[in-house]
Amino acid sequence: MPERPVAMFAMTAENVTRIFPPDALARLSELVDIDLSLVARDFTDPRVRARLAATEILITGWGCPTLDADTLDAAPELRAVLHAAGSVKGFTAPEVWERGIVVSSAAAANALPVAEYTLAMILLAGKDVFAHRDRLRAERSFPDGDILPGIGNFGRRVGIVGASRIGRRLIELLRPFDLRVSLADPYVDEAGAAALGVPLLPLDALLGGSDIVTVHAPQTPETRHLIGRRELALMPAGSVLVNTARGALVDHDALVEELRAGRISAILDVTDPEPLPADSPLYDLPNAFVTPHLAGSQGNEVARLGQTVLDEIERLLSGREPAYRIDLEGLARAA
Rank of each mutant, 00 (worst) to 15 (best):
D185Y: 00
K127G: 11
A332W: 01
L282W: 01
L112P: 02
A50R: 02
M1K: 07
G238I: 12
R49M: 03
L207S: 03
Y187D: 11
R320M: 05
P277C: 12
T118C: 05
Y283K: 06
G150I: 10
A50G: 07
V158G: 14
G247S: 13
A80H: 05
D128A: 11
E312W: 14
A295D: 13
E258C: 09
T220C: 14
L255W: 10
D178I: 02
P143Q: 00
L255R: 05
S37L: 10
L31W: 01
I264E: 14
I166E: 12
L112V: 12
Y117A: 06
A194Q: 06
G152C: 04
E77R: 02
S87F: 01
G86D: 13
T220D: 14
G155L: 05
P281W: 01
A233S: 15
A334K: 14
T223C: 15
E14Y: 15
D284R: 03
S318V: 06
R157I: 10
L282I: 04
M8R: 05
L123Y: 09
D327A: 02
D204Q: 08
A125N: 09
L282P: 09
F9H: 06
Y324I: 01
L183M: 06
F177P: 13
S182K: 07
D269Q: 11
N110E: 12
R333M: 00
A7K: 02
D211Q: 02
R165W: 06
P94T: 00
T220G: 15
A106W: 12
L67W: 04
A163N: 11
E257I: 08
I326P: 10
L241H: 08
G167V: 03
G63A: 04
V81P: 15
V96W: 00
R49L: 07
A193M: 09
G159C: 04
D23F: 10
R41Y: 13
F142Q: 09
L119S: 07
T118S: 00
A195Y: 01
E139G: 03
I19R: 04
I267W: 06
A131I: 01
F43Y: 03
L119T: 03
P65D: 01
L31H: 07
D42L: 00
R333V: 08
P149W: 04
T71D: 01
V256W: 01
I147A: 12
P46E: 03
L285W: 03
P281G: 00
A237F: 07
R315Q: 10
I19V: 15
D128K: 03
V198P: 13
L316H: 10
A40T: 03
V88D: 07
A138W: 01
V88H: 12
G63R: 09
L112Y: 02
P21K: 03
E3W: 09
E3C: 14
R18I: 12
D144C: 07
L226I: 05
D33F: 07
D185R: 06
L305V: 09
R169Q: 13
I313F: 10
L294W: 06
A69V: 04
L112G: 02
P5T: 00
R229G: 13
P281T: 05
R49T: 04
A84I: 08
V213K: 03
T60D: 05
D189P: 15
